[in-house]
Design a protein around this nucleic acid. Sequence first.
DNA 1: ACCTGAACACCGTTCAAGT
DNA 2: ACCTGAACACCGTTCAAGT
Lengths: 178, 178
Amino acid sequence: MPTPDRTSLDEIVAAAADLLEQEGLAGLTMSAVAQRVGVRAPSLYKRVDGRDQLIRLVAEATLQELATRLAQTDDPRRMLDTLRALGHERPAAFQLVMTPGAGTPRPRPAFGVRASAPVLQVGRRLAGEENALEAARTVTAWAAGFISMELNGGFNLGGDVDAAWDFGATRVLRAIAD
Amino acid sequence: MPTPDRTSLDEIVAAAADLLEQEGLAGLTMSAVAQRVGVRAPSLYKRVDGRDQLIRLVAEATLQELATRLAQTDDPRRMLDTLRALGHERPAAFQLVMTPGAGTPRPRPAFGVRASAPVLQVGRRLAGEENALEAARTVTAWAAGFISMELNGGFNLGGDVDAAWDFGATRVLRAIAD
DNA sequence: ACCTGAACACCGTTCAAGT
DNA sequence: ACCTGAACACCGTTCAAGT
């Protein structure tokens, strides 16, 4: 006898993403997600393979969102600021996507490819066709590293972090164009 | 009645570090560590506050090691290569230290300060006194981001990763000296 | 067809009891 | 003084039983 659905995959992923931000990766438990969507933990397995896959789905949704936002501008500096804004907005998801720890489930490559397309475009424009990939990687690496360190309190020497972001963004963008 | 010690804090931290590399952070369990050093899990609590502190001690030992290695050269490019070498040698520990996920225990600031001293020295030499901090942060962010992405398979667009490292290192070092 | 309670194997951690 | 087994509260996951 069929039963009306009490939740959905989208709702589950959204609940997991919220939980990730509020409680950290360790707080993203199957019971906690289940409670948020109003079912018991075992019911989640009707829509999700397990916790690892759920985490992966959160990572992929984040990359999706990132791809959309990055595609909205052509200006390199604006693009970097957009990336940083997402990092400040959803620090845990940002780190899950950009610098996942060892053993953390990884998004399928296609999602990364889509998100990096706009950056590659910038690389092409600033550094020319044959240096486009290297240029895109240099910019992405710098930004991801900076934001991760910033979010992790990795800057323990005081000073003005915004000034350092500005300094780095300016120099790195100029550097890849040489 | 006293009993001869069956293990030591150093041995415990070393076992935890090994386990981290071989099984990932999730595999670094108190029982697994205990088994490696030849005691039962509850005995670990005689020397360690708990799992989080143990992870923190592994992170701090890694920063210690990093500080020692970095201090062995003055050449900026060599220093970057040293950092990357450590990342390849102990990927899990490297990521634990440079880009820990949300909720992962963090090393006490003093350890980070010690490891970043040589980089700050380079920043001073290349960018001058008043830009030293920003320059050091730019270089560190780029390197940490690059190595993290590399270790995480974040470079999904093919191409030569070593070439991208060389491209980035050259440009970034030149950029901060402008 | 979806949901549930019960169960299993595993965690981290505490603590009284052993030597 | 250190180590241990037993216990507790928690995980993720499976599965038979309910509707």
